[in-house]
Computed example of a mutant assay.
Amino acid sequence: MRLSTFLPAAALACLLSLPTLVEASAEKNRLPIEKLTAKLQSCPKPEWPAESLRNGEEGQVVLAYLIGMDGRVIESRVEKSSGHPLLDLAAQDGLAKCLFMSPETIGRFEPTWTKMSYFWTLEDGETPAQAKARFEETKALAAAGNADAMYQMSWRYFAGDSEVEKNVPESLRLLRGSAESGYVHAQVALSMVLAAGRVVDQDVAQSIDWAKKAAAQGNASAQLNLARLLLDAPDRSQDDELMFDMLEKAVAQGEPEAKTMLGMLLIHAREGDKQRGLKLVVDAAEAQNRAAQYDLAYLYEKGEVLPQDMGKARALYQRSAAGGYQPAKDALLKLPR
């Protein structure tokens, strides 16, 4: 079972930042590099990996692309890293969808290499004074019973930081208070804590009850969480019909990890719709979901539903691993050279 972690809303503030795209001048390389211009209107903006945003990663990556006679990318490589593999891969994958000028426009009549640079730049964040003021406001709201603030403070006490000493009992008190107030993310988090049984006694039945309360609010992540718990529940608590219903509802809202979970269940079910299952996994992987990238790599590695392709498997495992997904890191170590 793969458990998601909900983060306080403040952790997403850097989503307002925008990366910029420029083309690099031609340089000598181990392969001839020519100046081929991308048709920028054809270039989708590379998606900034959520993990990189949370970690405040930025930098410039230089990429080389082999352009076919139709202006489409045949092959690509990272020439100079930004210092952050996940940003490098995101730029490489995103810009590979660009349409370039044909090599014929510069007098070449064969596929030709060109270079581009991509800058990932975060805007200035909060000043220390602003962060302190926001913390004090959140703390006061939590003390007054605000459910969202209690949820945010519960994570602060759980982890501990420069302003809050780690205090797991206080964290759990705030989390339960927020959940009892009906805050969906707190209900999901509490269900996960009860299921894990690490900081409190494990209680699967109570975990599922809280997950059901959260899912009843129509939140896709809550529906996915309930489906996960039901999948791993002991026999007396299993409910396959409810599990599939929750996954379908989460998929209908575009939840990528629900797509890969439902997709893999359909692929491995005796009478499942395997082609629909494959499409769901592919869609989720293209949305940069790390679990889906791992699942799709597994299908390529094993030759299930897809022709076996170790090159594609390795590339997908690498992307998943770069995003911090531990099963992908383990799979890379075991993959035949």
Score class of each variant (00 low, 15 high):
M1S: 13
F6L: 08
L7N: 05
A10S: 12
C14G: 10
E27V: 14
K28E: 13
K28C: 00
I33P: 09
L40R: 11
E47G: 06
L66G: 11
L66H: 14
L66V: 12
L66K: 15
M69A: 07
D70V: 04
E75M: 03
E75S: 09
E75Y: 08
S76D: 15
V78Q: 06
K80A: 15
S81R: 11
L87A: 10
L87Q: 03
A91W: 06
A91Q: 09
A96Y: 08
K97V: 04
T105D: 03
F109D: 09
K115W: 03
S117K: 14
W120T: 01
T127Y: 07
T127H: 05
A129P: 02
A133L: 14
F135E: 10
A140F: 00
A140V: 01
G145E: 05
A147I: 01
S154K: 00
A159H: 13
S162H: 14
L174A: 02
S178V: 01
E180T: 00
S181A: 15
G182W: 09
M192V: 15
M192T: 14
V193A: 04
G197V: 04
V199T: 15
D201V: 12
D203I: 03
D203K: 11
D203A: 07
I208T: 08
D209W: 09
K212V: 07
A222T: 05
Q223G: 11
L224W: 04
L224Q: 06
D232M: 07
P234G: 06
P234S: 05
R236S: 14
S237V: 00
Q238P: 00
D239G: 06
M243C: 14
L247A: 08
E248R: 15
K249W: 03
E257S: 11
I267K: 08
H268M: 10
E271V: 01
Q275V: 12
L278K: 10
L280N: 03
R290F: 00
A291V: 09
A291S: 13
Y294D: 00
A297F: 05
E301Y: 01
L306H: 04
P307L: 00
Q308C: 09
G311L: 03
L316T: 03
A322L: 02
K329P: 00
K329Q: 15
